[in-house]
């Protein structure tokens, strides 16, 4: 798989260039965690639905490692230690755990200062609101990650078929989780990639398909 990863990222780059030609403005790609390179590419100005807080943290880690600020809105159960393990730089992270009714205004204000904002919406979002937020995101070249539903998002990311390793019946402890990260873009068929998320060493790591085959075989 290690040889396939660069191909995928090349594909993504080509796709971005095509989109750039079609849409006029080329869109800047945000740095991603190495484990997600070729799996997910975040583009400035877009919003993404992300299912699973661990995956969202890994997505924050890319820009955060590259020196950017991250903001997290409306997620009081954001596990700080897990975020640090995923590679999020805590000193450049701000949380607004309880924004209450004003979560949308708070999110909009933070889009102005942080290129990546993770939000759990405090209510239903109208398409017009999402449109206005989209304009703001494009102006600020920021990315919105949403834990929940968001109209007309660029892609939906999720974690499926999680399998924890290291734990048995009353012995061992949770060590790592192998799961499929699934990216759904519009009507296109979903793209699945096997990942260790979390991984005890790298925070997250691409999984070799052979291992699963072996596990299944024996």
């Amino acid at each position: 798989m290690s040889s396939a990863a660069p191909d995928l990222s090349q594909l993504d780059q080509l796709r971005a260039r095509m989109q750039g030609m079609a849409g006029g403005m080329p869109r800047a790609a945000l740095p991603v965690h190495p484990a997600l390179s070729g799996v997910v590419q975040l583009y400035a100005g877009a919003s993404y639905e992300v299912d699973g807080l661990g995956l969202a943290m890994t997505l924050l880690a890319g820009p955060s490692r590259a020196g950017e600020w991250c903001a997290v809105v409306g997620i009081p159960d954001f596990g700080v230690e897990a975020a640090a393990e995923a590679g999020v730089e805590l000193s450049r992270t701000v949380l607004v755990p309880e924004p209450g009714e004003q979560w949308l205004e708070v999110t909009a204000a933070l889009v102005d200062v942080a290129p990546v904002v993770l939000v759990r919406p405090g209510g239903r979002v109208a398409a017009s609101v999402a449109e206005r937020m989209g304009a703001r995101l494009r102006k600020r070249a920021a990315v919105l990650l949403v834990q929940g539903e968001w109209p007309r998002c660029e892609a939906r990311l999720g974690v499926e078929e999680p399998v924890w390793s290291g734990v048995g019946q009353g012995h061992g402890h949770l060590r790592a989780r192998r799961a499929a990260v699934v990216v759904r873009r519009g009507a296109a068929p979903p793209r699945r990639s096997e990942l260790w998320l979390p991984d005890p060493v790298a925070g997250a790591r691409r999984a070799e398909p052979a291992v699963r085959a072996l596990e299944e075989a024996g």
Binding site: F78, V80, L90, T93, V94, L95, V96, P97, P99, Q102
Partner: peptide, 12 residues
């Protein structure tokens, strides 16, 4: 908007 304590920095 929310008050001084509403924005926090996470630490370990």
């Amino acid at each position: 908007m929310l008050g001084h304590d509403a924005v926090v920095v996470p630490v370990l």
